[in-house]
């Protein structure tokens, strides 16, 4: 792990994503140091290093930005159990390696990406919401937005390159592959 200066990649206007962030850190400063983990290339395995969320509640007019400490696993909706996730970008595909503790297999899910240029990909799988991935200074950055009703969540995620074995020793060795690259909503 190394510490580097975090500079947010330029946000793309995607599917109604508000261009409110631009360059700089979530707290408005320009030079805060955040541990982003190791550097790498798109094809490496990446794990979350930081998450910054901006929540807009149209019902109340509320607006809140929070930088979430640490990696923050994605919780399963029903019970909040954390999902362990590694992502990589290979052959214009987002490959997500996902496991939940106690499961006998882990999942490797391929989703289509659209390459905008050599450093930026758009997620092309969803029927709503948007995600984009870009490389900057050897780190992977994701910008995403999702909206339901009057509420919108905008997020910026930085990833550090995974160091060590894969799959991790705690994971099962059996993997279930799923190719969603040809799936048409």
């Amino acid at each position: 792990m190394r510490t580097t200066v975090l500079r947010w990649a330029p946000l793309l206007w995607v599917g109604g994503c508000l261009p409110f962030l631009g360059h700089g850190n979530p707290d408005g400063s320009d030079d805060a140091s955040v541990d982003l983990g190791a550097t790498g290339t798109f094809g490496d395995l990446w794990e979350r290093a930081t998450t910054t969320l901006t929540v807009i509640d149209g019902a109340t007019g509320g607006y809140e930005m929070k930088t979430v400490d640490g990696a923050q696993d994605v919780p399963w909706p029903e019970d909040g159990a954390p999902l362990e996730v590694f992502i990589q970008i290979v052959n214009d595909q987002l490959v997500s390696h996902v496991w939940q503790q106690g499961e006998p297999v882990y999942h490797r899910i391929h989703e289509p990406l659209l390459a905008l240029d050599s450093e930026t990909y758009l997620w092309a799988a969803g029927t709503q919401g948007s995600r984009s991935f870009s490389m900057s200074d050897g780190h992977l950055f994701e910008v995403a937005q999702d909206a339901v009703g009057d509420a919108m969540v905008l997020s910026q995620i930085t990833y550090g390159a995974h160091q060590g074995d894969f799959p991790p020793s705690a994971w099962p060795t059996q993997v279930l592959d799923a190719d969603l690259t040809e799936v048409q909503p």
Binding site: V55, D57, V74, P75, V98, H107, A125, D146, V153
Partner: peptide, 24 residues
């Protein structure tokens, strides 16, 4: 199975916000 997992991942940030209590 993969579409539910992928769907959860695509809404992962909102789920994190829900867990932390600041998403509507």
């Amino acid at each position: 199975v993969p579409t539910i997992i992928a769907g959860v991942l695509s809404k992962g940030d909102a789920l994190i916000g829900c867990k932390l209590g600041f998403v509507p």
